[in-house]
Design a protein around this nucleic acid. Structure first.
Lengths: 248, 248
DNA sequence: CGGGCTTTTGATATCCTTCAACTGTTGTGG
DNA sequence: CCACAACAGTTGAAGGATATCAAAAGCCCG
């Protein structure tokens, strides 16, 4: 149960041995285990492109004309609340698919946190492909169901856990996200700001900062460089998420 | 965006004119807009049964051998947290489908709040039907995607709203749930306890009780009978959910 | 009628937010 | 290359929303 996978990371699985011939991604994407003709169809219709950090892929409310796949980079998904605050709905990594939803418009903003490579496909074309290749549709359903389960986990986390437990669960989620994508480095890139994390967990940036400070004091983590975390005591973090409820 | 639809109410839509020939349900279920042969297949494999209030349909962790459809009644979905508290993950009503998920086991408990009629089908049979009738699978995907979006809404609600805003959003969700199922009665059945509601919203039962008391004082709602609410000022409730953030 | 569950209400405790000031970091233009 | 502005992060103090603890009242159901 990965708290970071709260939404719409529709396509991902174990890593394939070879990079995808279409988009060059090394992590399993939409095209995971498709036959050659399907791959040809997709590559004919999809385009690769590069984006700098802090670029907007799409905005909440925009007509959902394309689906995107992350080849490399990190994306933040967020919703704007009526009062101007934002709720971060999830973070997405290489191999994830964005913007394929039920509605006619995107239900959230998608913004890059790092620079990276992306792949886009027209929604109409993707829909045709789904009709053409039933196993692709089946895969979408499976991944959607899994997402739903993950989002429920996030709901539990945000609804009933203390601040430190939430931050711990965020860190564990980060580890999980990287573990699913290849060998786990000791130093994990963490391109999101305290504010991003707070908006994801339903906390203020100050509270997030204090939790990080506390974890560092207890030697559960360290920050060896800018936008980098190292997990020193995974067990303790796990214990934090398991034991604690909001306990106010 | 219905906060109560936070999860897995995989199958529902506008009301069909006629009750479903298979299960007698008047609300659109899995069989919505299926052709006759599919309906025959389903009715051959599914069984109707009745259950009293506070019965268990299935438990978190049980092997997910069957999917259930609610013909009539209200069901509570919940997860047990490591420390023994429960997180209510959603409430389900007539027409909703339960227990069709990605995993091998059910991800939550399902427990009836009222007595009611249900329909069950073996998962293996349902899977075959999905393969047999692609439009059914497509429908599952659409509904799953919509669920995902609803769960994100619930996440926003729980993460960033004040106690009263959450309770207001629960009430609005209740209204929405009934509205989707037919003509809206002025007195809404509300079979869940304050504790259930609190566990759903990430609040204590006392806080829920105080919010209800406050709403009654302000004449936004009344409780004309046991387990019954009447909405007196919908606009005010909506204003509550829109305006407020946690604002601590 | 009585026992247990649900709900209400009050008093107190506490976690987290808010407000504020300061420090560190990044990036940019002179 | 340095200075400076903008942004990100840290830390402290105070206040407030909600949890916790407690007790009593209301309400079903046996």
């Amino acid at each position: 149960m990965n708290p970071l996978d709260a939404t719409h990371s529709l396509v991902r699985d174990t890593q394939p041995a070879e990079p995808c011939s279409t988009c060059g991604s090394r992590v399993a994407g939409l095209c995971h285990r498709l036959d050659a003709s399907a791959l040809d169809d997709i590559s004919a219709d999809s385009q690769r492109f590069h984006l700098a950090a802090k670029s907007v892929l799409f905005r909440e409310g925009d007509p959902a004309q394309r689906a995107y796949s992350i080849v490399e980079g990190v994306v933040k998904l967020s919703r704007l609340l009526p009062d101007g605050k934002q709720q971060v709905v999830g973070f997405r990594f290489a191999g994830d698919i964005l913007g394929y939803g039920a509605g006619q418009t995107y239900p959230f903003d998608a913004e890059t946190l790092t620079g990276g490579h992306f792949c886009r496909i027209e929604r109409g074309r993707l829909d045709s492909l789904l009709r053409l290749y039933p196993q692709m549709e089946r895969r979408m359903l499976d991944l959607c169901l899994r997402e739903l389960s993950n989002t429920q986990d996030q709901l539990v986390s945000v609804g009933r856990r203390s601040a430190e437990a939430r931050v711990a669960s965020f860190l564990i989620g980060l580890v999980e996200a990287y573990r699913q994508r290849g060998p786990l480095p000791t130093d994990l890139p963490m391109p999101m700001t305290r504010s991003d994390i707070g908006d994801f967990l339903g906390l203020t940036l100050e509270t997030v900062s204090r939790s990080f400070a506390s974890f560092k004091r207890q030697k559960l983590i360290s920050e060896p460089g800018h936008q980098t975390v190292r997990i020193l005591d995974m067990e303790a973090l796990l214990r934090l998420t398991e034991g604690e409820t909001a306990g106010m």
